[in-house]
Nucleic acid binder design. Structure first.
Ligand SMILES: [Mn+2]
Ligand SMILES: [Mn+2]
Ligand SMILES: [Zn+2]
Ligand SMILES: [Zn+2]
Lengths: 138, 138
DNA sequence: TTCTTGACTTAGACTCTGTCTATTGTAGGA
DNA sequence: TCCTACAATAGACAGAGTCTAAGTCAAGAA
């Protein structure tokens, strides 16, 4: 994760305590936190950090391609530091749990040119919906 | 569309002027309106229709399976009357235009059991992102 | 090291989308 | 026609996210 901070400094980022803490919170695999969850965890380390700064920092990380924004359904967006390995999501319709999945093959290839209607297609988002083991059991 | 109204009456729906107007507005192909757009168009025909009724009616149509809810990004959900033919969406990242696409094959089949982690997967949402012809040109 | 300055952070007001409630209205059957 | 359960309404409320004005500070300059 200090790799990340180095990369960001190289891109002209000022290294502030707030940005450092947000980057630290977004560390690990299968991390899909909402902005408010990031704020709560960051505030545990740096109590005076503001919601606005968390939103700003997350937005910057997203435009730099270091974090992915995952739009769930109606609920708050989730922020995903696993931005360098393409993957998709399995979402529980009941409790909102998210798992990363890594199917083989490029889903972009499934869309023939005839079905592109002149669009320049550059990305595809696949979300599998269902019930997680816990919710299926109850 | 009066097919739709017939079906709904058969299911015990009271036919009110408001519901009729909402159903009329959601008529056609490649229709992906936000709730407020539905409200604006409905209000052109029935000026006193309320936002709450539009939300209620859309919610009912969705739970009856007559309309699909499409969560594009962090913005407002879109309502799609093309609920009886499974399809996916092509979204312009710049202007937000949406096209229906109908690729062959079942995208659910692309997720092997080993990648399901015990989830009971029942649906998959595929969104292709890129630039529409107009936006690519400018 | 201290100075300087523009980038950064903050609190809280504000917007947008959607939900809920209390009240009033009405579709459709008796 | 009358009754009543279902539906519509206005507007308060809530969650998620954006914006602004004012204060703060990281990091390069001297
Ligand atoms: Mn992920
Ligand atoms: Mn559609
Ligand atoms: Zn679950
Ligand atoms: Zn476009």
């Amino acid at each position: 994760m200090s790799d990340l901070l180095e990369r960001l400094r190289g891109r002209g980022w000022r290294l502030t305590a707030q940005r450092r803490v947000v980057a630290e919170v977004l560390n690990g695999d299968h991390v899909h936190l909402t902005a408010d969850e990031v704020h709560a965890r960051a505030a545990a380390r740096l109590p005076e950090i503001s919601r606005a700064t968390v939103y700003n920092t997350l937005g910057e990380l997203v435009s730099l391609g270091e974090v992915l924004e995952v739009a769930t359904d109606g609920r708050a967006k989730r922020y995903d530091p696993n931005a360098h390995r393409p993957h998709q999501h399995l979402v529980c319709s009941r409790c909102g749990a998210i798992r990363d999945v890594h199917p083989g093959g490029d889903p972009l290839a499934d869309l023939p040119t005839a079905e592109r209607f002149g669009f320049t297609v550059s990305a595809v988002e696949v979300t599998y919906r269902g019930l997680c083991p816990d919710c299926a059991r109850n």
